[in-house]
């Protein structure tokens, strides 16, 4: 199989429009059937092993999980748990992005702020917010405020650092252009600095989204007992393993969906960027 990596794509490109469409269709098919087959094989083996009693008793079989998830998605409890997790996620993530972006802009444009902020960032960034989770929950309780503080404590750094890097990356020629054509301060921010930094910020935002979900689920599990993490925490204590694994799977799917959604948003917002251009010639 090695060495054939590029061959299909190359032959497809060599053909005309119809052949290219067919080639693309075939590639899409490969992207679908290969993982589908692998998944079927893995889940099949797991199911067989579970039926034969060869898996640990605490690990539910795929059929049990599917049944549980099939029933759950029809129940309002499941969706209120998802909703609670999403609400915490949105709140904490929004704070991280807004504050991170604003501070990053300040530090990127102003050397003094940069020098004051940098040591603080370098000091606190490597400390995961989970370290001070016990304190925050003791002091601020298990409400949404605690979750927001913890999420922001973990998720602000990628946005902040990426924003600074993005602002510093503004092309000097473009900066000259805005001066030569007497752009106002606001125009310069809106049309030069912000779009230049946008691809960097987007990367930071996607990393922050993932971190935010991790911190939200952790606080739910350890402290607040709400949301998907709360469901898992209860299931863990009561030994309902189907619920535990099923909800875990749902959290994983939620993570994938959030990341994909942000990826789509990024693609639309940065349609002009070299990596996303359509019809560039």
């Amino acid at each position: 199989m090695t060495g054939t990596t590029l061959a299909p794509a190359r032959s497809a490109r060599a053909g005309g429009g119809a052949a290219r469409r067919r080639g693309r269709g075939r590639a899409a098919l490969r992207a679908v059937w290969a993982p589908a087959l692998l998944g079927a094989a893995l889940f099949g083996a797991w199911q067989l092993a579970a039926a034969a009693g060869a898996t640990p008793g605490s690990l539910p079989s795929p059929a049990d999980l599917a049944t549980y998830l099939g029933e759950s998605v029809l129940k309002s409890e499941f969706w209120s748990a998802v909703g609670s997790t999403m609400l915490s996620w949105t709140a904490g993530f929004a704070v991280s992005v807004l504050v991170g972006c604003a501070l990053g802009m300040l530090a990127g444009l102003n050397g003094v702020v940069d020098r004051l902020l940098f040591p603080v960032v370098e000091f606190f960034r490597p400390i995961p917010s989970i370290v001070y989770l016990p304190l925050v929950i003791l002091v601020a309780g298990t409400g949404r405020l605690s979750v927001m503080v913890l999420v922001a404590g973990g998720a602000i750094w990628p946005v902040l650092l990426q924003t600074v890097a993005g602002v510093h990356d503004t092309d000097p020629v473009l900066r000259d252009m805005t001066r030569a054509y007497a752009f106002t301060r606001r125009e310069r921010m809106r049309w030069c600095v912000l779009p230049s930094a946008a691809p960097f910020i987007a990367t930071g935002v996607r990393i922050s989204a993932t971190i935010s979900l991790v911190v939200v689920v952790t606080t739910e599990l350890v402290g607040t007992g709400k949301g998907l993490g709360g469901v898992m925490s209860t299931a863990y204590q009561t030994g309902s393993y189907v619920v535990l694994f099923g909800t875990g799977l749902a959290a994983a799917v939620l993570g994938v969906l959030l990341d994909q959604a942000l990826g789509l948003l990024e693609k639309r917002a940065l349609h002009w960027h070299a990596a996303y251009r359509e019809g560039a010639r």
Binding site: D171, L174, D176, M177, R179, Y181, A182, C192, P195, A198
Partner: peptide
Amino acid sequence: RSPHPDMALVFQDYTRSLMPWA
């Protein structure tokens, strides 16, 4: 001493002086 409103500049590097997002 600073950019004059009666003067317009055409830059050497058009890929960098035009805004790709506009």
